[in-house]
Simulated assay, not measured.
Amino acid sequence: MPQNVRFEIPFVTPVSPHLAAARERHLRWVWNAGLVRSEAAFKEYESWDLAQAAARTYPHAGATDMVTLMNWFSLAFLFDDQFDTGKPDRSDRIAEVARELIVTPLRPAGTPPRVECPITLAWAEVWEQLADGMSLAWRGRFAASWGRFLVAHTEEIDLAARGVTLGSAAYRAFRRRTVGIHHSIDAGERSRRFEVPAQVQSHPTMIGLRDMAADTIGFMNDIHSLEREQRRGDGHNLVSVLRDERGGSWADAIDEAVRITEACLRKYLRLEAHVPAMCDELGLDDAQRDRVRMGVEAIRHWINGNYEWALNTGRYAAAKDTPAAAAEQQGRGSLDDLLAV
């Protein structure tokens, strides 16, 4: 089964020692914030174990910051599930909420959302915590990456509503935006309270590292989540795109998706080997090189941490006989409506 597909990642990454305690606090926050509104939705959300994903991708965060990062994780995943193919006007509400999520980091801290629903209210709270102590440059970079992700998300919903399918080349470029890895890597800096130097962020080597990490993670997720997206009728998946474009069996499409993913990982590793030369070229001092090292570690944490989580999360489970699975098969992405006040 696709969720059992294994990749050879030539490095290991740690898991936060705060996982258990932070998970308990996070689940309580999700319920109190109204991000799950029924017992069935809570059980489904709990099975995803997003707390584990955050603990693997941000293993060096402190205890309180770990909870903040887990809370932030919940917003993107729960928002992603709000699209309902049975309600034609749903895309308009999603776009309205997405715009609010985009502009929140651009407003003064503490500004209440103008579009109110559980997700926007929770994001205003979480953003104030995420931005705390970070420079204006980091906030702008995160906001730009976050905005591109949300715009791509609404574009994906629009494509699905119009029944538009992308070819493999167009899909691969599109997936780099919808996977949301660039702002997630930015959050890796927040998790350890450092910032990668600006001249490094704009260097082709670092740009390439971030892009190849996004491709690798996005395509791994496509493979591991295939059965879930088939239940949802979601064709925006590398495996589905390859099968539609080339014909053949699902197994053939999965094999090709694995080959493409492995090629992206190899390219990432080649770029990573050039990091010392990049530091020399830019004339970085020891302190700056240390921040670059942590920046590369943040990318590694995402590649391997997300992979390890994806192998066992209930979100991608193939055989599910739950209210959430039934909702997916009926064209509803979520048990609870989180876009209404």
Results as ranks from 00 to 15, higher is better:
residue 156 E to D: 15
residue 147 G to D: 07
residue 283 G to C: 08
residue 156 E to Y: 04
residue 258 V to Y: 00
residue 230 Q to K: 11
residue 144 A to Q: 13
residue 44 E to A: 14
residue 22 A to Y: 02
residue 67 V to C: 01
residue 199 Q to V: 12
residue 77 F to C: 08
residue 155 E to C: 08
residue 152 A to Q: 03
residue 72 W to L: 13
residue 248 G to H: 03
residue 111 T to I: 10
residue 273 A to D: 15
residue 268 Y to G: 03
residue 227 E to I: 02
residue 262 E to K: 09
residue 135 S to N: 09
residue 289 R to F: 02
residue 130 L to W: 01
residue 276 P to I: 10
residue 2 P to H: 02
residue 49 D to S: 10
residue 328 E to Y: 01
residue 22 A to D: 06
residue 80 D to A: 10
residue 165 T to S: 13
residue 16 S to T: 11
residue 10 P to F: 09
residue 304 N to V: 11
residue 152 A to K: 03
residue 60 H to S: 10
residue 23 R to A: 13
residue 173 A to R: 14
residue 188 G to I: 04
residue 132 D to S: 13
residue 155 E to W: 08
residue 31 W to V: 15
residue 226 L to C: 08
residue 189 E to T: 03
residue 108 P to A: 14
residue 212 M to N: 11
residue 154 T to V: 15
residue 17 P to Y: 00
residue 85 T to K: 10
residue 300 R to G: 04
residue 336 D to E: 06
residue 142 F to P: 00
residue 173 A to Y: 08
residue 26 H to F: 14
residue 19 L to D: 06
residue 137 A to R: 13
residue 11 F to D: 11
residue 90 R to W: 02
residue 194 F to G: 05
residue 95 A to R: 11
residue 270 R to E: 15
residue 34 G to A: 08
residue 207 I to H: 06
residue 15 V to R: 10
residue 185 I to E: 01
residue 240 S to K: 05
residue 135 S to P: 05
residue 322 T to D: 08
residue 335 L to W: 02
residue 125 E to P: 00
residue 122 A to R: 00
residue 311 L to M: 11
residue 130 L to V: 07
residue 318 A to M: 09
residue 169 A to P: 00
residue 53 A to T: 09
residue 9 I to C: 07
residue 29 W to K: 03
residue 160 A to E: 09
residue 35 L to W: 00
residue 306 N to M: 08
residue 40 A to C: 07
residue 241 V to M: 04
residue 120 T to K: 04
residue 56 R to C: 11
residue 163 G to S: 06
residue 272 E to Y: 03
residue 326 A to H: 10
residue 301 H to N: 15
residue 286 D to G: 01
residue 56 R to K: 06
residue 87 K to Q: 10
residue 197 P to M: 05
residue 33 A to I: 07
residue 240 S to V: 14
residue 202 S to E: 14
residue 191 S to Q: 08
residue 186 D to L: 06
residue 277 A to I: 01
residue 115 V to L: 01
residue 266 R to W: 00
residue 47 S to Q: 09
residue 193 R to M: 11
residue 21 A to K: 07
residue 9 I to T: 09
residue 5 V to E: 11
residue 220 M to C: 12
residue 325 A to L: 04
residue 235 G to A: 12
residue 59 P to K: 01
residue 250 W to K: 09
residue 277 A to S: 13
residue 219 F to N: 04
residue 266 R to Q: 13
residue 314 G to D: 08
residue 82 Q to T: 06
residue 76 A to I: 15
residue 291 R to P: 00
residue 223 I to P: 01
residue 304 N to Q: 12
residue 322 T to S: 12
residue 116 E to K: 13
residue 69 L to T: 05
residue 245 E to I: 13
residue 256 E to Y: 02
residue 17 P to N: 07
residue 35 L to F: 05
residue 334 S to G: 06
residue 97 V to L: 02
residue 144 A to C: 07
residue 295 G to K: 02
